[in-house]
């Protein structure tokens, strides 16, 4: 069994938003919506400022509250631990939206709930997710954590990294290389 994950190199990301646009095109994301987004976090006091740029999306959590709170099992774990929403089972109760600490989900204009899928349709063909494949600075790595020699496993072994609000207890699988 694979365990898919993503690592985003905050030292390389320049916040160009190519990943956001690529996702919108690849997945026909309705206008005005997005499944991934860029965050700039500034910490410190002038002149000692530190800026971190991150491309964020659903974390495909291992202990996903969205899956737990879904009354119909529309939200579920698919192959490789990818968290997906089955459109024909979703009733639009929005329990999953309120349960996601990352606000990664939204109601699609057609009524069902939508979010990042790690481009599972591309992954199945052996390709990288659209965002990863277009990143001009190669700041994103997608891969299988179960495979010790994969690029992502190597990166997590050799680089300092973090996840977002691990204290929310969801065991996120999008890592940020520091």
């Amino acid at each position: 069994m694979a365990r898919y994950a993503m690592a985003i190199d905050t030292k390389r990301c320049v916040g160009c938003t190519d990943c956001v646009v690529a996702c919108q095109t690849e997945n026909n994301v309705p206008v005005g919506y997005c499944r991934d987004w860029i965050v700039e976090e500034t910490t410190g006091t002038y002149p000692e400022l530190h800026m971190e740029i991150r491309s964020e999306r659903c974390n495909h959590c291992e202990d996903a509250p969205c899956v737990r709170s879904c009354p119909t099992s529309a939200s579920h774990y698919a192959d490789g631990g990818i968290v997906l929403v089955d459109h024909d089972e979703c009733i639009g109760c929005k329990a999953c939206i309120t349960s996601c600490p990352y606000d990664a989900r939204f109601v699609h204009p057609e009524g069902y709930v939508d979010k990042c899928t790690f481009c599972i349709h591309r992954v199945k063909e052996g390709k990288d997710p659209a965002c990863v494949s277009v990143c001009p600075t190669h700041a994103m790595i997608f891969g299988d954590l179960e495979d010790e020699n994969s690029e992502i496993s190597e990166a997590l072994k050799t680089r300092k990294h973090k996840t977002l609000i691990p204290e929310a207890g969801t065991v996120p699988h999008v890592y940020y290389l520091l």
Binding site: V20, I38, E41, T43, G44, I97, D103, R105
Partner: peptide
């Protein structure tokens, strides 16, 4: 100081700027 800004613009209806999933 800590300041976080979503620079790519995220205005998912019902989610941003504050969650309003339930009326």
């Amino acid at each position: 100081m800590k300041e976080i800004e979503i620079t790519s613009g995220r205005m998912n209806p019902g989610i941003d700027p504050v969650l309003h999933a339930w009326g």
